[in-house]
Nucleic acid binder design. Structure first.
Lengths: 158, 158
DNA sequence: AAATTAAAGGTCAAACAAGGTCAAAAGGTC
DNA sequence: GACCTTTTGACCTTGTTTGACCTTTAATTT
């Protein structure tokens, strides 16, 4: 497979999928030992792969009996107002390609997008497509993804 | 044999033909070493021989575990002509919103797009979404629509 | 109960490992 | 010689891994 980070990511996602609750608790040091890496590697995985844009909440506790808890947040949007708020939080003014792909992936996994729809969106936000210089590109990308997602809820109640 | 570029091109196309998936992943630096050339030579090959107009999609990732992925977009005789026509329209450097909407409308009417898919595309190319000044905006719009349309051909089996 | 110690997890920057860009130089072609 | 394509190299940006040092909390001792 790919990098260490990728391996740890998929290990954790498998654990999450296996737990009915959509929630797991692990010990950072134990995981680090398991993959024979530095403990801080785990934090790297958590921040790059289990961010809030990607639909995860990470909580932790230090000290004896400490743990890291990863919670999968289901998307639950019932109206356009809620959706707008969600998009405000997860997209913001500026959006990197990676973060955008995370959002699309999440929507797909939650069953809000078909495969084709996610392909379209992914193509749209690629940096090659958005041939712009960097401060600007991320702004347009945020706009773009927001508009595309919002379009799906247009005229859709509940 | 021709130039170095030709050799690299045919090497990659052979790899692509050999892979069942119509998709390969390579490391730029490895390939460059293999042909004992500058890494940037690989980029030259990619942009001149594996462009989207030529039916390829190139994605890449930097950093540790980085790669270059080349995807062959499957285009069969059946849809090739349609695609070519559509690209003729969108392939122009520049595209107005009206013209773009026309293309989307036509695709929808011909049954290539679902209603939702056309909503996504329409939202993407709106001038409010593409908050850019005018010479630039139409350029990006053309890119955008082209990329989105091509994305659909990606998952199509002949 | 307070102080101490041990057991977690957190942060940050440096080192490392890719790929990208751009312009200049080199080769061909008419 | 003018023009186009190819080749090279210097410099840039992004993503990953590691390690030294810090903070918080629980358990143990006094």
């Amino acid at each position: 497979m790919g990098t260490l980070t990728d391996q740890i990511e998929s290990y954790l996602k498998q654990m999450l999928a296996g737990s009915g609750e959509g929630l797991i608790e692990i010990q950072r040091s134990w995981l680090a030992q398991m993959f024979s890496c530095a403990p801080s590697q785990i934090n790297y995985v958590l921040t790059t792969r289990f961010s809030i844009e990607q639909g995860y909440l990470v909580e932790s506790r230090r000290g004896g009996g400490g743990y890291v808890r990863i919670v999968r947040l289901p998307i639950n949007v019932h109206n356009e107002e809620q959706l707008r708020k969600l998009l405000e939080i997860t997209l913001g003014e500026s959006l990197s390609q990676q973060a955008g792909e995370g959002v699309i992936q999440r929507l797909f996994e939650e069953g809000h997008l078909t495969d084709r729809e996610s392909q379209i969106m992914r193509a749209a936000i690629r940096r090659e497509t958005l041939a712009l210089d960097l401060p600007h590109r991320d702004l347009i990308r945020a706009n773009l993804l927001r508009a595309m997602i919002l379009a799906l809820w247009q005229g859709m109640d509940s």
